[in-house]
Amino acid sequence: MPKKIMVVDDDPDIVDYLVSVFEDHGYDTCRASDGISAYEVAMAEKPDLITLDIEMPHEWGPRFYRRLTSEKEFSDIPVIVISGLSGIHLAIRRAVATIKKPFDPAEVIQIVREALGE
């Protein structure tokens, strides 16, 4: 059964982009446009990995991350930060990787595979 990746970003074009990339590489996906909805989606969809933007309306990425990982079932979920903000590599310490926009899709896939132990 394919792994499921949740894409969180407030720019729908970028969400479309990442979702397309992941689906083209055989992953299942789900999406959210801000921290609050991302929490609900995660609860419903139980993703295996998350790509997370930092600056979003309503709730920023780091806060969502803390809230989600305080749930036992998500305490070890791998998160890849994808953001345009500079100096963000420490925003989420336990992130498996921090990718700056604009990114290379092949690099993203590489990191996802490593993170999922494939």
């Binding site: 982009y17 990339v21 083209d24 700056k100 926009k101 604009p102």
Partner: peptide, 21 residues
């Protein structure tokens, strides 16, 4: 503006990727 520009460039990349694919 760099932040906004990066977002735009990413969206452009995404558009091209999705167009090609």
């Amino acid at each position: 503006m760099s932040h906004g520009v990066k977002g735009m460039l990413t969206s452009l990349d995404g558009g091209i990727y999705r167009l090609e694919s």
